[in-house]
Each structure stands twice: as C-alpha cells, then as structure tokens.
Write a protein that binds this DNA or RNA. Sequence first.
DNA 1: CGGAGCTCCTGGGGGC
DNA 2: TGCCCCCAGGAGCTCC
Length: 291
Amino acid sequence: MPELPEVESVRVGLAVHVADRRVAAVEVLHPRSVRRHAAGPDDLAAQLVGQTFQAPRRRGKYLWFPLGDAARAMVAHLGMSGQFRVTEPGRPDEPHLRVRLRLDDGSFELRFVDQRTFGGLAVEPVDDDGVPTSVQHIARDPFDPHYDRSATAARIRSRRTDLKRALLDQTVVSGIGNIYADEALWRARLHPMRATQRLRPVQAREVLQAAADVMAEALQAGGTSFDRLYVDVNGESGWFGRSLQVYGREGEPCARCGRPVRRQAFMNRSSYVCVSCQRPPRGVDRSEQPS
DNA sequence: CGGAGCTCCTGGGGGC
DNA sequence: TGCCCCCAGGAGCTCC
C-alpha cells in the first residue's frame, strides 16, 4: 500500500511531467474520487482549468500540486490503490480510471486511476506555508527538514495508547502505514502492543529512527510492491518488497533469531511480529490476538 | 479533546 | 463451475 516512500516516488516521477503544465480540461469519471472537494466535480474542474501546476509537494502520504495563483492547490491522496499515469490521449481508458486531466494543448493526459476509491482529488486553499487545508492536521514526516525526532518521541510517550497505534496516527508522525510500522517495530525490537507511556525516551526515539531508516531504504529501492496495483507514473511496475523483514512473512524464520514470524490481529488488520525479538508486554498473549 | 471503533470500496482467493 | 465470505487498509467520522 502506498506509504511515504511510494508517495515520494510518485511525487518525483510526476514533477517532471506536470510542473509548469497548464490544465486544459478535467473529466471526473467517478464522483467518489472527488468527494473531498465539497463543491462537487463541476466546481473542481472549473477551479483547475486554465491553472498551471507548480512542482508537486508532499507531507506524509498526502501529495499536492500548488496552482499558479499560489493561493490554492490540487490535493491528492492515493488511499489504498490510487495511481497516477501520464499517457498520450487516445490510449484506452484504464478499467478504474476516475479522473482525467488534459494538460497543455491536450498533447498528454494525467490520469488518476483508483480501483478501491479510497483515494481522491480536491482543490483547496493553502496557508502561509503553502499547506492545503486538509493537510494542516497532518504531522511532519521523518523526511521533512523541520521534523523533530525528539519532540515526536515525546509526543508518542505522552499518548495513552499502544505503540503501533501511535506510529500509525498521522497527527503524531506522518507517512508510516501498516507495513513500515511493522518493519520499524521489528528493527527496534519493540512489540506493537507496548504501552506508549511505559516506553523509555530512547526506545521512542529508536523506533522513529528505525521507521525513517526503513522508509529511506525503501525509497532507495524504488518503493515497495507486491500488490501490482502500484505502478509508477508511466505505468511501469518498479517497486520491490525486498527490504521487508517481517511484513507478510507469517511462518517464515525471523532474520535475526530464526524463530517463526507470527501474524496477529490488531486494529482489524494484521501485525507481523517476532515474539522472541519483540517481547510482548505483560498481559498480552505471545501467540495470539493481542486485542 | 483524546482514544477507540466503524465505515467506505473492489477484486482476488479459499472453501464448499 | 459458481457462489459466498473474508481479506487487504488509510483516514475521516462518530461516539464516549
């Protein structure tokens, strides 16, 4: 699923194609994909046509394209399955094509394709820092030059919840999803159910550093795939899951200790842990269902 | 306001 | 072969 490294790959790929391009026409093929644009599909199109995209920006998993008027931006979230494709006009529509943007004189198209429609596009005002309305509540991510790891660690420890929940909370630290949360926890040898308030400061800092490291490595490798839903902006499958040590590896030996990786139900989704390396806190069964 | 649970959505896969 | 159910999960929303 697209987490920070995947979204960053898309941002870099799109920068070449869309920066300084003018929007000639917008066609919304599925209203759900623009549901975050409160004024509706026609208004979205009207606000975009004639505008020029500036180089795309990103915070966490949000991507946005500042418009030439510098007062607004087109915000994009890929959700579970969103993709951008840059194509020539006339290429057959993808089965899950949701929004088509014709750029320049119509010589090429930017297509938003999204099977599960968890993602979407909207046009929003930006604040003095250029951050769109719907992104303002999102915390800075570990790649942000103003990201403060110690402050983020303190914020995690001030929460009254378990560690994985805090890592997934985009208002605490952004960009981390289920996959990189599991990877970071494994690297830091911390169990997902550890109480945030009982963590030592160094442990909170270490799991954040592990998250930053694993995401940087994934970005280097071109993002993570294993779900062919994700392709880069030109439709080429270029993402690899090779750096994942625990996620999706139920029953396989832990790369550190050789004991089998376990899959545990957590927050209505899956967590992959080595219960030998990642000691469960008291009260949590080491074999099954933590919550 | 913080925390937790619910819900949106679609296609693939397993079971029968 | 066909059908049903479960699963994947980001994040906004609601409720307490």
